[in-house]
Amino acid sequence: ETKWDMPTPYGDSNFHTQNIMTFAEDVAAKTNGSLSIQVHSAGSLFKHPEIKNAVRKGLAPIGELLISRLSNEDPVFGVDSVPFLANSYDSSFKLYQASKPIMEEKLEAQGLKLLYTVPWPPQGIYTKKDVNSIDDLKGLKFRAYNTSTERLAQLAGAVPTQVEVADLPTAFSTGRVEAMITSPSTGADSKAWDYLDHYYDAQAWLPKNMVIVNADAFNALSAEEQAAVMEAAAAAETRGWEASKVETDAKTKVLVDNGITVAVPSEALQNGLKEIGDVMTAEWAESAGEDGAAIVKAFMD
């Protein structure tokens, strides 16, 4: 009997965590209990920044993390966070397939095996005041948490501002930040209506979480157990992508129900954002070199 500890970053009611719980049950059922997975949610075993290395070093055989956290390590991991490159579930899945071989190769070099990915709902813009064109973003304090969001803010003429997640309510209430880009999930879960008023469903990008496993730990399983894990992973991926779509509608509705003005960006705003997206896609492809070119080519085909 093998027991795997699985650190995950998000809380129990998060749809990613719930999908993982089902995955764990699935694995136990498919292996008749010879492999059990104990999920440690909400960073209770390892916190988000430590999860990848914990799995790589075999401190935990399996874990979940946001892929784009690794984009400073290698731009390839940032492909799902290039604004307006893939902005629907279908194109996002296509981009995932285009980038998957290279991503798997990069992970394999670290002794990691990719099991499956699940996207977050499309990222939209949250603000305290009306935004009808790119000009309205000008001068707004815009949350930036990595190079890509910083660049986005700069290109929009906004003021990149660093705010930690836990500090968001205070930062919005006291005016240290005036706009951010994130999913309807994060907005609803953090009760964004307590501190801002507008949500623009800009569908900027669909960042993904991935579940990775330590290759040595995986290879130590019997052939049947390995097959069971892969089957459960495939099922979790399908289930997760569907759950994400359901989540988008449900959480957008939560935003509406709680008095946030939810709108599709005006054409002027949409066009402005598209221009920024083109610049950033070109910049990303350049930074990612040959890998980037290959991914873009596979995606465009």
């Binding site: 920044p49 400073n72 390590e73 948490y145 990595n146 190079t147 990149p160 660093q162």
Partner: peptide, 9 residues
């Protein structure tokens, strides 16, 4: 080659 995730790696 582990790096931090913020604006400066």
């Amino acid at each position: 080659n582990e790096v931090s995730i913020g604006i400066i790696p």
